[in-house]
Design a protein around this nucleic acid. Sequence first.
DNA 1: ATTTGGTTTAACCATGCGGTTAATATAATA
DNA 2: TATTATATTAACCGCATGGTTAAACCAAAT
Lengths: 177, 177
Amino acid sequence: MEAIARGAAINKAMLFYYFSSKDNLYRTVLFGVFSEFFGEIGRIISGQLTPDLFLEKFPEIFIRFIARHPDLLRIMVFDLIHNPENVTTAMAEIIHEKISFKPHPLFELIRRWHKQGLVSESDPLHFMMNIVALSIFSFIGKPMVEAISGIKVTSDEDFYRKRIASVVNVLQRGMLK
Amino acid sequence: MEAIARGAAINKAMLFYYFSSKDNLYRTVLFGVFSEFFGEIGRIISGQLTPDLFLEKFPEIFIRFIARHPDLLRIMVFDLIHNPENVTTAMAEIIHEKISFKPHPLFELIRRWHKQGLVSESDPLHFMMNIVALSIFSFIGKPMVEAISGIKVTSDEDFYRKRIASVVNVLQRGMLK
DNA sequence: ATTTGGTTTAACCATGCGGTTAATATAATA
DNA sequence: TATTATATTAACCGCATGGTTAAACCAAAT
């Protein structure tokens, strides 16, 4: 909290005055950032959406979004690992009650794609996990893979572009029929 | 450290007596667990290894290994996110100096596969990242995807089996030619 | 000018935690 | 048995940090 206050050039007590607790500040920030994210995602989901367009756009949006908010992933993953109930209830609350994005239509869409023989994965949960996994790991795992391989990434922009290309390629070839 | 000592039914000071610092204890544990892991991986890597066998075995070993060591991922991801230099230098040291597993032969093998037209991904770094990403996210992301989708995983064993199947399917269809 | 309500701050409190220490118990050795 | 090296412990230290408080500041309303 002190560091946040320093960053905002205000006194630490002001954070508690306006946000009452660290947890509440956290949720407020999450809400803002989720609104932004699901807004972007919502914009590509429509009736005419094809699976291969979805698999092309989603990783791009996801990876670019996280790259734009480098601290978000750090904070969320920390919470996800240490007390998942906390962050998941906060997320569920935010998503289901306050934001227009509803996941169920997307899940129904994925099921329909599978029934139409367009995608190979029948379970929408695993379908989405595959996409998110490939996108998110670009950030968490980069230093680990660098350490194991001994290969250092030179340009970030270059890395993300190649990463997006690789992810989209794997997803389209791997999940489309 | 206090919790670890409690778990081992010893006094906290003993941990410092035998391991001198938290960091050193951490590295000792990492070393043990990495030896185990890379031992398992090393066993499947040989001259006759085919890419599709590799893509089938690696995720299975990886996912089962992490499932067997639930705290490992938590600790490593925490470090990976908060001070990557720390964990990566520790990892590099452990892998390159103390363990028989060498990543370069594997990377060469992947390059050869690509030259032979067996796999579509030309960069071994991204090739490996795709595999690790899909495997690892089964653990970190599970609660998140559950929260967003509203679908709760019932049986763990069931979840892992389906997860492995989905990952192997995506990888084999997505990266093989 | 004085009251009032929101705003801002420095100083403080409590707790958690990595790490230390000095003293004691125990086993090995001469 | 006396000595020495190794194990083991309770108590303590210092620092970071989430959170609180009481007082001061300041603008607008009376």
